[in-house]
Design a protein around this nucleic acid. Sequence first.
DNA 1: AAGATTATTTGGAACGGTCTAAATACCGCG
DNA 2: CGCGGTATTTAGACCGTTCCAAATAATCTT
Lengths: 389, 389
Amino acid sequence: MNKVLPVFPLFLSDISAIYNPTSLMIWNVPIDVRDGKVAPVTGKRRASTNVTIIDIAREAGVSKSTVSLVLKGSTLVADETRDRVSRAMSKLGYVYNRGAANLRGAQSSIVGMVINDLSNPFFAELAIGIERVLRTSGYIPFIANTAESVVRQAEVVRSMREHGASGIILSPALDTDGREINSLLDLGMPIILAIRRVPGARASLVASDNMAGAARVTQHLISLGHRRIAFLGGMGAMAVRKDRIAGFTQALEEVGLRADPALMLESMPTKDGAFTAMSALLSRPDWPTAVVCFNDVVAIGVMQALSRKGLLPGRDMAITGFDDTTEARQVSPPLTTVSVDAGDLGERAAQMLLRQIAAGNQTTETYIGEARLVVRESCCPPPRERKVS
Amino acid sequence: MNKVLPVFPLFLSDISAIYNPTSLMIWNVPIDVRDGKVAPVTGKRRASTNVTIIDIAREAGVSKSTVSLVLKGSTLVADETRDRVSRAMSKLGYVYNRGAANLRGAQSSIVGMVINDLSNPFFAELAIGIERVLRTSGYIPFIANTAESVVRQAEVVRSMREHGASGIILSPALDTDGREINSLLDLGMPIILAIRRVPGARASLVASDNMAGAARVTQHLISLGHRRIAFLGGMGAMAVRKDRIAGFTQALEEVGLRADPALMLESMPTKDGAFTAMSALLSRPDWPTAVVCFNDVVAIGVMQALSRKGLLPGRDMAITGFDDTTEARQVSPPLTTVSVDAGDLGERAAQMLLRQIAAGNQTTETYIGEARLVVRESCCPPPRERKVS
DNA sequence: AAGATTATTTGGAACGGTCTAAATACCGCG
DNA sequence: CGCGGTATTTAGACCGTTCCAAATAATCTT
C-alpha cells in the first residue's frame, strides 16, 4: 500500500513564474508605486479578527486539546465540557481554520472539479451534479473552468494541489495528454475522468455510452428509410467523437450500408463551427437525407445552416443531436436526440471519487451511463419515401 | 482603520454539527464499522509525497529562508542562488503548500463566488466572467452553487471563511437577509453583491440597470401600439422584480397609462412557474395584448403556455424577455429582450472585489451595467392595430 | 482504603511555510 | 589591511490546528 511514490516531473516547466506574485498581480490590483519602484501590494492579512482554538480554550477554561476534541466530535469529552466549549465558540465567533488543520494531517475536505466548458449547459449540469453529492458529504468543491485550454488546465490542477485537494474530477480539455493524467495518478492523487476519456490514461472514468447512443439514433434514422446519412461535428482527435462514429458506422453496417467518408465532417463542437461545416456540405451537390450530429450544440448550428438555405429541419432533412440538453427541447423543431443525464453522471463521478479517497487505493473503475433515444420532431423520412406514402 | 471588530453571531446556530465529521460523512463515504461502533474513516493524509521547503533547501544547499524568498520572487536573492533553488524544486517535484503559507500571514489567494443558480445560463456566464479576471490575477476562485437555498448559502459562506477566502462575490439566494451580509462585512470580509441587490445590505453592488431596461422594453411595446400590457414573473420580494416593475410602470405613466394590478402576476422565475402563471392568465376573460416577462426563462415558459392554447407568440400576442441569454436567440420566434452582458458584469464584480481586497478599505461601490433593447421577432402590434394597417 | 480500571483532560511536539532581526559575504577605498 | 556600506543569507519564533503520550479524575473492586 505504501509504495514509494516516484519523483514527479512538474506539469509546467517554469515553476517560479507561478508563485511569483509580482508577475501575476499586475492585472488589475493596484500596485504600490512608491519612490519609482513597483512593489507588490501587501494587503491586509486574514479578513476576520482571528479567534483561535486557544481563545476558546481560555474562555471555556479548558486546554486547547480539549477544544480540538470537541471540534472533531470526539466521544471522549464529557457532555458538560462539550457544552461549555460550544458556548464559548459561538460567544467569540470562532471560525475553524482549515488551512492550519490540514497542515497537521487532517484529511483535507476539498476536492477539485475541473470543467472544460462551463458555458455549455451539459457541463454545467454535470458540475451541479458533482457539487450536489460533494457538498452533502461535507466536501467542498473547487470548481474551475478551463475553456478547453490545456495550459489553463495544468495551472488549475496545480493550484488545486497547492491547496491540498484530496482528489480531482476532471472533464478534460480537448487535447489532454494521457501521460499528464498518469503522472498525477502516480503521485497518489485520485482522479476521475468525466465525460471524455483520455487515450492512454489509467484513470477511472464516468461517461455515457456514446457508441450505443450513436448506434441507436442511427438505427432510428435507418428505420425511417434513410440511406445517405452524414455524421457531422467534433474534431478528429476527440475520443468521444471516435466512439460515436463507431456506433454510427456499426449501425450502418448492421443493415449492409457503408459509412461514406465524404459524409463524415469535422467541426469545432460549437454552434458556429457546425454552421460553417454544414454550409460547406450544403454547397456540394449530393446532399445526405439525414445528419447525425456530434451533439445538441452542433445540431443547432446545423439547423441554422439549413434555415439559411431556406430548408426546414425536420421536413427537408432529418437532424439528430446528442446529450439532450434543455436547448434540445426549446429549439424548433424540437430535436430528436440521445439523452444523457449529465447531473446523474456528475453524481456518479463524485461518488466514485469519494469512494476512492476513502479507500485510499487506486482501483480503476469505469461507469458507463445509459444513452436513451429521445424522439422529437426533427426527423422526417427521406424525400423519396415520403412521396411513396 | 483598525477599529475593533464586534463579536459576531454565527450564521448557523449549532456549530458542532458543521465540523463533526461523523455527522457529515455518512452520505456516501464508507464508514468503518468495526466492533459495532461507527468510526469516522481515517483516510490517507495528503495525496502527494510531501516535498517541503526544507527538502529543497537541503538539496540546493541553502537555508529554508532563502527558498522562501525565491518562492516570493524577492529581489534579494542572488541570481545564481535562485537558479539553484529553482532547479532543486523541479528536481524534487515540489508543490507549494498554500495552507501552510496562509497560516503565517500571507495573503490568501482564494476568493469565493457564490452563485444562486448555476444551471441558469445567465448566471453561468456571470461565473465565467468572474473566473476569467480572478484567474488572470493569480487568485483562485471557489465556486459554489446555492440553488436558491439560504441555508446552503450560509454553509457555503462559512466554508469559504474556514478556508480563509479573502473576499466573496455573492449572487444572493432569493430571500437573503441583509443583516447577514452586514455582519459579514462588519467582520472585515469584502463582499460584492452581484445581479441582485439585497435590501438593507451595505455591500457593494454590480448589477444591470433593471429599471431602465424594463422601461425601454415597455416603451417599445407602447410604440407598437399596445395599451393593455401585463408584467409576469418573479416573486414579490425580489428586489430585481421591484426594479423592473418600477421601470415598467414608469414607461406606462409617461404616456398617461396606468399599470393594472390585475395584470401584474407573480411566478417562480422558472419555465414551469411561468407556464402555470400564464395559463392562469389565459383562462381569464380579458387578455392583455402584450406581456413583459421578468426574464428570458419566464418568457419561454409564457410562450409555451401560449402555444398550448394554440396561440403563436409574436403573432397573437407580443412577448418580451430580459437578460438576452443564448436561449433567447434560439427559441422560436427569437425573443425580443433586454441585453445584459453577464460576462461583463462578472468581470466588473471581480475587478471591484480585487480592488477592495487590495485597498483594504470598505468603500461601498456600485456599478450598474447598461441594459440594451434587442428587438427580435416575438413582438407584433396588437390585433386592432394590425387590422388598421 | 488501596489498587485497578475507566473516563477525561492536557502538555507539547509536529506540520510547512513567512517574517524579522541579525549574521555573514563581498566590494571599493584610503 | 581595516572600514563602511551594500548585497545575501540565515536562525528561529510564530501561525492555528492535530495527535500522541502521559497526567489526572472518577468509579469500581475486593
